[in-house]
Design a protein around this nucleic acid. Structure first.
Lengths: 132, 132
DNA sequence: CTGAAGGGTGGAGTGCACTCCAGGTCAAGT
DNA sequence: ACTTGACCTGGAGTGCACTCCACCCTTCAG
């Protein structure tokens, strides 16, 4: 039992590739990850926590650049909490808007499906008439 | 008054660039658009209708490749309506799943916001105590 | 002692969906 | 006659987010 996670563990747990994990670190989304004497990464609970948030924001389409800004705020210390809240609140609003848009589009798609089903139903009854 | 739309009109109405419009045509998302004697495109009502659907599907993240397949079904004639329904129904399901995921992530983000607000509230009461 | 597993690096490559550009045509207005 | 604006073409370029590669190192089971 150790108090850190290996790259493989973290990657598996988050469904990310090792390359992506390293990429996120390079891009400044994660702070300086600790290393073992052999140079291997050791992810602490705090890294994993940050990664959870990163994944949450990435999965809701926050661009890497914005995530980096957010990560910089985190690294700058607790006095940036108001700005962090601002970022998250804005993203939350965008998310609400995006969900609403998806719903609207979904409605339209469903109408199209219904329309096509209507066409099929009509063709079917045409065939029945023919058969009479 | 004409019974077709110019590229500029179509682009404005759909919020697409002329380049994107041409790109979609090249990629086979739109059928053979008619041309004026001068070689300029003339979009018919049916093109605009197709474009509405294309936009609907693109805005809900259907990849261009899948859209091309769908467009090919449309061009192949009415006997492909069952397959078209299949495509749309599957996309609808993916959309439902995506919306659910976004909602879940949004919940998590909101929890984080609340957490940060809690930290702020605590700091504020600390300061008050100091001032006493 | 060996070889497989699991990591490390820098840098190049990929896939997607556009987006831009140079150089050209055409129609209409002044 | 000239300019302007809308459009045309083929092809190159862009931005994003990974993803892959070659080559190297260490640890550990058999």
């Amino acid at each position: 039992m150790t108090d850190y996670y290996t790259p493989g563990e973290v990657a598996r747990r988050h469904g990310l590739s090792l390359d992506t994990l390293r990429y996120y670190e390079r891009e400044g989304l994660l702070a300086q990850v600790e290393r073992s004497p052999a140079g291997h990464r050791r992810y602490r609970a705090s890294d994993v926590e940050m990664l959870d948030l990163v994944r949450c924001l990435r999965d809701t389409d926050m661009p890497i650049a914005r995530l980096r800004e957010f990560a910089e705020l985190v690294r700058a210390g607790d006095h940036t909490i108001p700005q962090r809240i601002e970022v998250l609140v804005e993203h939350d609003a965008q998310l609400t808007a995006r969900i609403a848009e998806l719903r609207r589009r979904q409605e339209a798609i469903r109408h199209k499906i219904d329309y096509y089903r209507g066409v099929l139903a009509e063709n079917r009854s045409d065939t029945e008439e023919e058969g009479r």
